[in-house]
Every structure is written in structure tokens, then in C-alpha cells.
């Protein structure tokens, strides 16, 4: 059984990355992440690799939540235009958070997922492959393709400014 201190540390450390990861599929990312932590607290025994396990649970639940949302409304068609920024405004970065969010949403889902996991959740490509259920080489390939697409898209935005 997981101690409350360990659980709190996991929430503080991986909560933002998990929420960002869940936002790719659904608008209720916080609820999905919270359910994942509650599920982790009830797990006996505790999963050996807790972080990939958490991302796996968040992924499945976010996909289910996104499907439910799409049934209620055409979420995906309007998501890019109305989605709030995934990143804190005014952060010390050369890229605007809102622009980066739009560029990420324009990526194919598998590329966006792997870029998100690698850049903001600090998962290795082996862990990403376990979470996304693909091979490590596929994860590498999708990451490179997604990064190239982002570069192209951000250059377009940069030229339009």
C-alpha cells in the first residue's frame, strides 16, 4: 500500500505533466488525473513502475473521456480554436504558450503524445513505448516527425507575425 507522503510527492511531481498529457484527448484532464491517483492508492500491490503506470491509466481514461465528450458535442472540431493554453503565459521561453498549444493540437495524435511525454513528462523512450504500446524505434520516429512538423508550423507562425 502506498503511503500518503509518497502519493503526495507523486501528485506534486507528475501532476502537471499528467494533466498536460490528458489534455490531448479530453477537456476534463484534472478529473482524469485525479481518478488515476485514486486508483493508484487502491492498488495492491503498488505497481513496480509507478510513473509509466500512471501515464498509462491517464491515457486510457482520457481517451474514454474524450470519446464521451465527442458524443455530447463536436469537441474535436472546435477544440483547436477554443482550447485554452496548455502552458503558463509569460513563461521564460522563446515560444508563446498559446501558439505552441495550437501547434501541438495540429499534430497527429501519436506524434503529439510522444512529444508531450518526452518534453514535459521527462519519460524515456522506453517508458514512452510502454505507455503508448509501441516499439522504442517507433516512438523515436514519431518524435522526430512531430518535432519536424512543429518546427515547420512554428516557422509559419513566426513568418505571419
Amino acid at each position: 500500500m502506498m503511503s500518503p507522503e509518497t502519493l503526495a510527492e507523486l501528485v506534486d511531481r507528475h501532476g502537471p505533466g499528467l494533466t498536460l498529457y490528458a489534455r490531448q484527448w479530453c477537456a476534463t484532464a484534472e478529473d482524469v488525473v485525479q481518478d488515476a491517483f485514486v486508483k493508484l492508492a487502491g492498488e495492491k500491490p503498488v505497481p513496480q513502475r509507478v510513473v509509466p503506470w500512471l501515464y498509462r491509466v491517464v491515457r486510457n481514461r482520457a481517451i474514454d473521456a474524450g470519446r464521451a465528450e465527442r458524443r455530447r458535442r463536436h469537441y474535436e472540431t472546435r477544440a483547436a480554436g477554443r482550447s485554452p493554453s496548455w502552458f503558463t503565459p509569460g513563461a521564460d521561453s522563446a515560444i508563446d504558450g498559446q501558439v505552441a498549444t495550437a501547434a501541438l493540437l495540429a499534430l497527429p495524435p501519436e506524434q503529439r503524445e510522444i512529444i508531450t511525454l518526452h518534453l514535459w513528462s521527462d519519460l524515456t523512450f522506453e517508458e514512452i513505448a510502454a505507455v503508448a504500446r509501441c516499439s522504442t524505434s517507433t516512438a523515436h520516429r514519431w518524435y522526430a516527425a512531430g518535432l519536424a512538423a512543429l518546427r515547420e508550423r512554428l516557422n509559419v507562425h513566426a513568418a505571419s507575425r
Binding site: 502537471p16 498536460l20 485554452p84 503558463t88 513563461a91 521564460d92 514535459w120
Partner: peptide, 16 residues
């Protein structure tokens, strides 16, 4: 530098 710039973005704190 694109990778480093993207890493510099801070995800919005979740409303947990």
C-alpha cells in the same frame, strides 16, 4: 533550439 524552447514552456498547473 526548438526542443529546448519547448522544454522551457511550463504546463499550466492543474486545478487538482
Amino acid at each position: 533550439d526548438l526542443e529546448a524552447a519547448l522544454r522551457g514552456l511550463t504546463p499550466v498547473a492543474p486545478a487538482l
